[in-house]
């Protein structure tokens, strides 16, 4: 067996330094090694988007990325959205209020994709919304509740960056907690949080 390789990542503000097999996908690492099972696996070939997480602020399909490729990165998963007292994030509240989920399996992916979109642009136009949501598959809702939820989330945020909802220090926020060393490995600079 190929030996483990040590990686350092920050996930939802918690620093980890662990060994992983090079072939381990990022989603398997998050789910099996870190126990963060809120991110779901729907297709394992990058189409459905259920496994979407943020890596250095970018929405990625964690089934198509290896854990070793995330070395030095800051990762946000659905577990990182809620507030310190267990408050739902406004994006989560919006999905709840607008019946934006049924079985809930694809939902973490939709939440993270929406989070990234509203970080980039707090007032996305229809084309942007369709472009982003068009990259995620839901089999239950027919997307109508999800579409309403995105509008609702835009209203709730009112221009606030998703990361700043619970005050500075939220995931991907300007004061995201540091990894063990402030400028972790990434020779390419990918280790910097809030790159956007």
């Amino acid at each position: 067996m190929i030996g483990d390789r040590r990686i350092r990542v920050s996930v939802n503000g918690t620093a980890y330094e662990v060994g992983v097999e090079p072939r381990t996908t990022l989603v398997d690492f998050l789910r099996a090694d870190l126990g963060l099972t809120g991110t779901h696996v729907g297709c394992e070939h990058g189409v459905c988007g259920a496994c979407t997480v943020l890596v250095d602020g970018l929405a990625v399909r964690s089934c198509l990325m290896l854990a070793v490729q995330a070395d030095g990165s800051e990762i946000t998963t659905v577990e990182g959205l809620e507030g310190p007292e267990g408050e739902l994030h406004p994006i989560q509240e919006a999905f709840l209020e607008e019946h934006g989920l049924q079985c809930g399996f694809c939902t973490p992916g939709f939440l993270m994709a929406t989070y990234e979109m509203l970080t980039d642009d707090p007032k996305p136009d229809e084309d942007e919304i369709m472009e982003v949501l068009g990259g995620q598959i839901c089999r239950c809702t027919g997307y109508q509740g999800i579409r309403r939820a995105v509008d609702c989330a835009i209203d709730k945020l009112g221009g606030t960056r998703p990361a700043d909802v619970f005050g500075a220090g939220g995931p991907e926020g300007p004061d995201a907690p540091d990894a063990p060393d402030a400028d972790p490995v990434g020779a390419d600079g990918a280790g910097e949080g809030s790159a956007r």
Partner: peptide, 21 residues
């Protein structure tokens, strides 16, 4: 009525079968 199932689903808390260890 908004669904009582949703908060747990929205926060990744519901245990689906692949989450079982």
């Amino acid at each position: 009525v908004t669904r009582r199932e949703d908060a747990a689903l929205l926060t990744g808390r519901v245990e689906f079968i692949d989450d079982v260890a």
